[in-house]
Simulated scan of single mutants.
Amino acid sequence: MRTSSSFVRDVPVLLVAVVWGSSFLAVQRVAEPGTVVAMLVLRFALMLPVLGAFAWPALRRMGRREWLGGALLGLVLSGIFLLETYGAVHTSATNAGLIISLTMVFTPLAESALGRTSLPRAFLAAAGLSVLGIALLTGGGGLKAPSLGDLLMLGAALVRTVHVLTMSRIPAIRGTDSLAATWVQLATATAVFALVAPLAGPAPWTVAASYGPSQWAWLLHLTLLCTLFAFFVQMWAVRTTSPSRVSLLLGTEPLWAAVFGITLAGDHLGPPALFGAVLVLIGTEWGRRTSAPAAQRAVDPESEGDREPEAGPVPTPTPEPDLEPDLESSPASAPASA
């Protein structure tokens, strides 16, 4: 009976990893380089009223400092979404999902550097394995330079790391309701997209009018499943199971991105790139497992309740997600996945 109960709790979280893995393919189905910003406006304009209805009581209790802290994080979040979405339309869905998973490596490295603490040698080995895998994946095993999309996704992974670190260092939002904090971040990011949209391509309503049933289905997939569903499942999961278990399940996101990229998007990986993809998956998961015990030991028991759980990001998170992070396993950063 206990095993059955654990399975029931795990399935929704695993489904979040699956839909996050599909998000890169979904972006390619609804956006082109010239319509990225307009699509982001549409995506979050559809989602904000729904999330806001749930967040309204907590939003009314927020003070000025909490709103400003959330808005600051929202500015960083807008950078993540722009880099991820532009990156996804300029590279393969497989590459996008695997490269963004480097947030799981970057975040502990950055935390270690800022805190002047050492990481286990096993983690450093895992990080090296991941970097080698990315080099093989993006270079095809040769000396070919990464594509523009690959570089944008790498930039998104770095900014996801900044998002996670910034979130943990803004006292004003530390005790803020995660639902309200998420709404403020996403509302701020949407405002940025709306301001940039006139300079970046056709107006959002023009893009909306050009969508057929298929594009609307993919856009609703991004809005309802990759954002709303993912967020509420994470909020539920961290209250019914352990954060480490949630993080482990959400860590399968890059695997699902590769599955969708290869089977549905028709991504073709030669032997060197395929070997690189495997190294990335092994390296990021190995890094996740080896860094978690060290991070747990570093937590002050008196402040453990204030600690952010990942991305992923991710974010997640991550969110994006990682996050993220990739959960970035804090619920407030979950939507940071493309």
Results as ranks from 00 to 15, higher is better:
L124Y: 06
T176F: 00
S130R: 04
A125I: 09
A113D: 00
V192W: 02
V184K: 01
A217Y: 13
A187N: 07
F232E: 07
V192G: 01
L220M: 12
H221P: 04
A181F: 04
M153Q: 05
T190V: 02
H163W: 11
H163F: 13
S168W: 00
G115A: 06
A194H: 04
P171D: 07
T138Y: 00
L129K: 13
S147I: 04
W183C: 08
V159G: 05
G201N: 03
P202N: 10
G140R: 01
L154I: 11
V196D: 03
S214E: 13
A194K: 01
Q215N: 09
L132T: 14
A230P: 08
L158R: 08
T161R: 09
L179N: 15
L224C: 14
P146R: 08
A217E: 10
L132C: 12
T223N: 06
G140S: 01
L151K: 05
I170Y: 01
Y211T: 14
S210E: 07
W218F: 15
F231E: 15
V164I: 13
Q215Y: 10
A194M: 06
G115V: 00
L143R: 11
S178W: 03
P120Y: 06
A122I: 11
R174W: 07
V233H: 05
L151R: 07
L165E: 05
G149T: 13
R121H: 09
C226T: 13
P204D: 10
A230W: 08
F231R: 13
A122S: 14
I134F: 10
F232I: 14
L137Y: 09
T188D: 00
I170V: 07
L124W: 06
